[in-house]
């Protein structure tokens, strides 16, 4: 009788341990992003988010009436609504003889660790940038607005939202007066694009 009791005790403990282990494996496998568990709890607004929101607010437009009312948009020709020459937001600031320090946006140690190197960091007018780099325009920037151009070569590849581009030359664009970051253009070779339908 005692041996039977020992057997059932052992069996019960074994089943509890097995189910516990299995549930643990299930929960872990259901969250392939390990960072969920690594991340520190966020108790306040991240300073980088706060800074970005403050910058965005400086340039915020007044919502246009024809898109702010609660109406579905009728079918038909909308060509008459289209404005191909909106007023630029980032204007020339002639008195700006002090530009922001582009070096604050460059992590040389990191770049060296991934085999990347800065090819160019230079202030120029937006018009000159478009011409020299054969770029298409952001209409938010006036042609005579001064911009900081930062170009970095990543021979081992640059990870983007859409995949890893090998032998990438990445050209970043900043407002020279304020350091506001506009975005980047890249040339390279991507073997595995992460986009819907691809």
């Amino acid at each position: 009788m005692r041996r039977k009791s020992v057997f059932w005790k052992i069996l019960t403990i074994a089943v509890i341990v097995a189910v516990g282990l299995s549930v643990g494996v299930f929960v872990y496998a259901s969250n392939p992003d390990d960072s969920v568990y690594d991340a520190e709890p966020i108790t306040a607004v991240d300073p980088a988010i706060q800074k970005s929101m403050e910058e965005a607010a400086l340039y915020e437009e007044t919502p246009r009436l024809n898109v702010s009312d609660d109406q579905y948009v009728a079918e038909g020709d909308k060509s008459e609504y289209l404005n191909n020459n909106p007023q630029p937001i980032f204007q020339a600031v002639p008195e700006a003889d002090q530009y922001f320090d582009i070096n604050t946006r460059i992590d040389e140690e990191y770049l060296a660790s991934v085999g990347a190197a800065v090819k160019l960091k230079e202030v120029m007018s937006y018009e000159a940038f478009l011409e020299n780099f054969n770029e298409e325009a952001l209409t938010a920037i006036a042609p005579d607005c001064m911009v900081y151009v930062l170009q970095v070569h990543y021979p081992n590849g640059y990870e983007t939202r859409r995949g890893l581009y090998l032998d990438a030359v990445v050209t970043g664009l900043y407002d020279a007066a304020t350091g506001y970051y506009h975005g980047f253009s890249l040339t390279g070779q991507c073997e595995n694009i992460n986009a819907p339908g691809e």
């Binding site: 965005a56 915020e60 937001i89 859409r162 980047f184 253009s185 390279g188």
Partner: peptide
């Protein structure tokens, strides 16, 4: 983007 180019820009405003 394409297999050889990728551009990503904020639209400010």
């Amino acid at each position: 983007g394409s297999s050889s180019t990728y551009n990503e820009y904020k639209i400010s405003g």
